Amino acid sequence: MGALDGRVAIITGAGRGIGREHALLFASEGAAVVVNDLGGGQDGSGADATPAQQVVEEIRAAGGQAVANGDDITDAEGAQRLIQTALDEFGELNVLVNNAGILRDRTLVNMSDEEWDAVIRVHLRGHFMPLRAAARYWKDAHKAGRAPRGSVINTASTSGLFGNIGQGNYGAAKSGIASLTTIAQLELERFGVRVNAICPTARTRLTENVLVAGKDGGFDADDPANISPFVAYLGTADCPIAGRTFYVHGGAVHLFQPWALIDKIETDHRWTVEELQKEAPRLAETPFNLGIPWA
């Protein structure tokens, strides 16, 4: 018996890297998987159906159920076709893993309009479109008296929640995804849907220049396969976690605390600029305990 027996999952960006590992593990745990991947380069250019189909063939060779899908998840009609693929092939949709992403790193003063728009489109719009299509299906299922026990796992990043030089476009999109996760949970819980997000650190095409494979034969903390077990757990029917964002790396799962009020200045009348010049500077000295694991 697998932890995901009977569950139907869509995983975007599942042709390579972390998404591929998600698809393989989900299938090994009994899920039927829609492997979505446009097959573009790490900057989003081009298209190639081969990676998604190869993952499907690998899953089927191991006795699992999978089908490839090459729709553009940033397109409303493409996202709807993606959801429909799961329904047509497997008769249900239980899990949506939004994982697809690209990079166009550049400092703000050097970033082009196209570099900004492309990253925001693939990450933020590419999360919204499948999420909206899945949410509409789950809303209708709930109204019809069915309970697919939907689960959404979004992919945010510490580049957004902690910040990273040269990734204003990527970080802004990823912070937006974390906020979208919080709001989607508030809206969709009435339909029996859980929405969570992860911020993974692993070696992929997007990070291979930074995270190099170790040679000592020990535990490889940067192996992308380390991320997938927690994602699979979040996708199980009875997982109680909802509306949370996690940092996942190696064998560690860290829970983020969302934005919180930690200090204030206050008066019983409207502030004057002169008063603020006297009182507000101490807010610049309030320490933040971000809990950055690698700090």
Score class of each variant (00 low, 15 high):
87 L>F: 01
89 E>F: 09
93 L>I: 14
94 N>W: 09
96 L>G: 06
96 L>T: 08
100 A>T: 06
100 A>C: 10
102 I>G: 09
108 L>Q: 08
108 L>D: 15
109 V>A: 08
113 D>K: 13
113 D>I: 15
113 D>Y: 12
119 V>M: 05
121 R>A: 08
121 R>K: 11
121 R>I: 15
122 V>L: 12
124 L>F: 00
131 L>K: 13
132 R>M: 05
133 A>P: 05
135 A>V: 11
137 Y>M: 11
141 A>P: 07
143 K>G: 10
144 A>V: 08
145 G>S: 02
146 R>N: 14
146 R>F: 10
149 R>L: 12
149 R>M: 12
152 V>Q: 07
154 N>I: 04
164 N>R: 04
168 G>A: 13
172 A>K: 03
174 K>V: 02
175 S>V: 00
176 G>V: 01
176 G>M: 02
177 I>Y: 00
180 L>G: 07
180 L>S: 15
181 T>S: 00
182 T>E: 15
186 L>E: 11
186 L>P: 07
188 L>G: 03
189 E>K: 14
191 F>H: 07
192 G>Y: 03
194 R>Q: 11
195 V>E: 15
197 A>V: 04
201 T>Y: 06
202 A>Y: 03
202 A>E: 03
203 R>D: 03
204 T>M: 04
204 T>S: 03
205 R>W: 15
207 T>N: 15
207 T>V: 10
208 E>P: 07
211 L>C: 09
212 V>N: 08
214 G>C: 06
214 G>R: 07
214 G>T: 05
